[in-house]
């Protein structure tokens, strides 16, 4: 198993297992898990998330997570 840090933003905050928040939390996953596996574990329905950043860089859904990484997940957002 690996432990990663996850954070959910904007409308995805409701899927934070500790209650609606963008505070980071720890998640345990089997080795070789992808970001997509993480979304399933957190019960985030397909299509609700737009982008994921791992250690400050955008990654694809099939990115294989490593021990200790930080994953930030966002729905579609904009501003300016």
């Amino acid at each position: 198993m690996i432990t990663i840090e996850a954070a959910l933003f904007a409308t995805l905050r409701t899927y934070n297992p500790n209650g609606e928040s963008s505070e980071p939390f720890r998640v345990q996953l089997p080795e070789g898990s992808t970001i997509e596996n993480l979304l399933k574990k957190l019960n985030i329905p397909p299509g609700e998330s737009k982008q994921a950043f791992v250690n400050n860089r955008r990654q694809e859904w099939d990115y294989i997570l490593q021990e200790g990484e930080r994953v930030a997940i966002f729905p579609p957002i904009a501003g300016g």
């Binding site: 904007a10 950043f53 400050n56 860089r57 955008r58 930030a72 729905p75 579609p76 904009a78």
Partner: peptide, 24 residues
């Protein structure tokens, strides 16, 4: 998704960008 009623801009305003810019 970004501009519809209840979408990102409407619900959170433009400061929704703070966290994503911080993240990158």
């Amino acid at each position: 998704d970004l501009t519809k009623p209840g979408g990102a801009l409407n619900s959170f305003g433009t400061a929704i960008l703070i966290n994503v810019l911080n993240e990158v």
